[in-house]
Computed example of a mutant assay.
Amino acid sequence: MSYKASGNAIVDRSFYFACDIVIYAEKLKEKRYFEIANQLLKSGTSIGANVRESQRGVSKKDFKNKLGIALKEADETSFWLDVIEETKIFNVPSSLREDCETLIKLLVSIIKNS
């Protein structure tokens, strides 16, 4: 079964971002950057997992808590992308960086307005 777009911007964006992170992490692994690839893979895919879990929140507090975790994971993902860029070990696609920043902005907005 393939992913079906939900029409919910944060759910869909975080899912496709996770897919892009998986592909990018595989490229890092091909260059033998296993540790940083695994760190990035964990944080980058956790964003979408927590966003999806938030949709089944049992309360508003639970919903905001899950999105808060997703926000922390997005910030960690941004950190790993910064490390990769700063050390120049591998090229970080601008689209990956932009998508991460967009997710952070969306998550902040949703949490503030919930």
Rank of each mutant, 00 (worst) to 15 (best):
M1F: 14
Y3H: 13
Y3V: 15
K4E: 15
S6R: 10
S6W: 01
S6K: 08
G7F: 14
G7T: 14
N8G: 06
N8Q: 12
N8T: 11
A9C: 03
I10H: 09
I10M: 05
I10K: 04
R13L: 15
F15A: 09
F15R: 10
F15L: 09
Y16W: 12
F17W: 00
A18G: 02
A18R: 02
C19D: 14
I21P: 02
V22D: 15
I23L: 15
I23S: 15
K27Y: 04
K27R: 14
L28Q: 07
K29A: 13
E30H: 04
K31T: 10
K31H: 10
R32G: 06
Y33K: 10
E35Q: 13
I36F: 14
I36P: 14
A37V: 00
A37H: 07
A37C: 02
A37I: 07
A37D: 01
N38Q: 03
N38F: 01
L40M: 09
L40H: 08
L40R: 02
L40F: 09
L40P: 05
L41C: 09
K42I: 07
G44S: 01
T45C: 15
T45M: 14
T45H: 08
G48T: 04
G48D: 01
G48I: 06
A49R: 07
N50R: 09
E53L: 11
E53N: 10
S54G: 07
S54C: 03
Q55Y: 13
Q55S: 14
R56C: 13
R56L: 15
R56P: 09
V58C: 11
V58M: 13
V58G: 14
V58R: 13
S59C: 08
K60I: 13
K61Y: 13
D62I: 01
D62G: 10
F63Q: 00
N65H: 14
N65K: 12
K66G: 09
G68I: 04
G68R: 01
I69S: 06
L71F: 11
L71H: 04
K72I: 06
A74K: 08
A74P: 06
D75L: 14
E76I: 04
E76S: 01
E76A: 05
E76N: 05
T77Y: 04
S78F: 03
F79T: 06
F79S: 05
V83W: 00
V83Y: 04
V83G: 09
I84C: 05
I84K: 05
E85T: 15
E86I: 12
K88P: 01
K88C: 11
K88I: 00
I89H: 02
I89Y: 13
I89F: 11
N91F: 11
P93E: 10
S94L: 11
S95T: 12
L96E: 04
L96R: 10
R97M: 09
E98A: 02
D99S: 03
D99E: 08
D99H: 05
E101C: 08
L103A: 08
K105I: 05
K105F: 05
K105A: 00
L107T: 08
S109R: 01
S109V: 00
I110N: 01
I110E: 07
K112Y: 02
N113M: 00
N113D: 11
